[in-house]
Design a protein around this nucleic acid. Structure first.
Lengths: 256, 256
DNA sequence: GAGTGGTCTAGACCACGAA
DNA sequence: TCGTGGTCTAGACCACTCC
């Protein structure tokens, strides 16, 4: 290529910065389907050449899409369009007594026909922190922390708290709580859950969550805080969950 | 490769990059409360001086926190700790017949004692798109788009679709649907909603949503897709909502 | 006017993945 | 080995805020 001694500076509109215009173009191609799930985006070098920009600027454009969760970078390989294949989590049906009453795991209702696993289980007994003791109205709790994976990929981490004076000595304090899970054991103990409240939030993950869910940049977590109540309004479980938002759709049904 | 007399080479992988370590320190200060809502973070110049790094690196550190939604940059001023003052949106109670049956707006139940407003209203009749026609089982729809603000800040945009053959000529096709809102009008028309399903997702916003909700970087949206059914399972409304996740906590109650 | 964040250039070395 | 993205430096000019 002939290097002109007088490089004519391209007239740049300052409507929006270059990196943003480039990101907008790429986003359009993704959302319109011109670039499909798993397709490779033009890389940093390609953008530098195509638009005559510095590397940092090309990176900035790609960073926009990455932070929006539309693309994922793969080191030594490229930047790719991200996919969204959610699990449908049915808010009420999954917790109906029929589920755990028959010795079925709640997860069977979430992931029909898919391979799910409990990756990690951590159990301990400890004094309740302030928010936990306020929710469960007790001083000591058993804590069950676990991670769930579907099709080999982590999708949720959950930490459950149980009043120690209720569950002490039961299978709830063991790694495997047995058929029907912890709710069936609470039933055995005379505290079957009859009512639930769920609080749902969304936010960007904290580093610990990013690590345990192996989240790419630009992926929020859905945070669910659920309290299970036995008869008489006695709280028997507080469950704090963090869900990979790219893996989930929550469904709730109710009457007017 | 000559053996250097100098110290042990770093094993395999080095620690986190500088910008990430700095971000981690600042994050700890935010989450621990040492830096509170609205406090000013050390700026780019301060970080450059404190850590002896280049400006781009300092920016990178701050960008981490901004993309996590923990901090907001203000041009010409500084970077500040972000606040979280959510609206509690009660999934079922708010849609109970008692709400709209007595001419009360649904929003009264979400924002007790706070000033809320419908900022923008857009009305049109159009052919249903494929997903809309699948949900509502009809070909033409009336579309109500509006934006809600609380305490002067936009928190939600919503687009409702109604089967045109049901609502044509009713106040649902007018900017102000009257006391009790659109559900009271559906009741008048002989199609009172008796059942709802909500699908809840979270993701990073698209530019249009960022603009209309005035979202800072690092703020996901909660996307809710709700279908209202009249007796006999007749769908009478599809409502697609996008909520500022920093402004909302969703609450759902149900029995086992 | 001084200081802040926003954008951009032009280099550098590194770790990793694929061929 | 070579191209990819990941990190980092050392500058520059700009628009904006605050005083």
């Amino acid at each position: 290529m002939t290097e002109s001694p007088v490089p004519p500076p391209p007239p740049m509109h300052h409507d929006s910065p270059i990196y943003r215009r480039i990101a907008d173009r790429l986003r359009d191609q993704i959302l319109s389907g011109a670039l499909d799930d798993g397709d490779r985006l033009p890389g940093e070098n390609a953008l530098m050449a195509e638009y005559g920009i510095a590397r940092a600027t090309a990176r900035q454009a790609l960073a926009v899409l990455i932070n929006e969760g539309l693309a994922v970078p793969r080191r030594g390989s490229g930047v790719y369009v991200r996919l969204f294949r959610p699990i449908r989590r049915h808010g009420s049906r999954r917790l109906s007594r029929e589920q755990w009453g028959r010795g079925r795991a709640i997860w069977d209702s979430d992931t029909p026909g898919r391979a799910y696993a409990v990756d990690e289980v951590d159990l301990r007994r400890e004094p309740a922190s302030t928010p936990v003791s306020r929710a469960l109205r007790c001083d000591d709790v058993w804590v069950r922390h676990r991670r769930y994976s579907v099709d080999g990929r982590p999708v949720q981490v959950a930490t459950s708290y149980f009043p120690a004076d209720i569950v002490e000595g039961s299978a709830i304090t063991l790694p495997d709580p047995g058929p029907g899970g912890v709710y069936a054991r609470l039933d055995d103990l005379g505290y079957p859950p009859v009512h639930f409240t769920e609080e749902v939030r969304a936010r960007m993950p904290q580093p610990r969550e990013t690590a345990s869910l192996d989240l790419p940049a630009g992926t929020p977590v859905i945070v669910i805080s659920r309290i299970a109540f036995a008869a008489g309004g006695v709280p028997v479980e507080l469950n704090e969950m963090a869900l990979d938002s790219a893996s989930y759709v929550l469904q709730y049904d109710f009457d007017a």
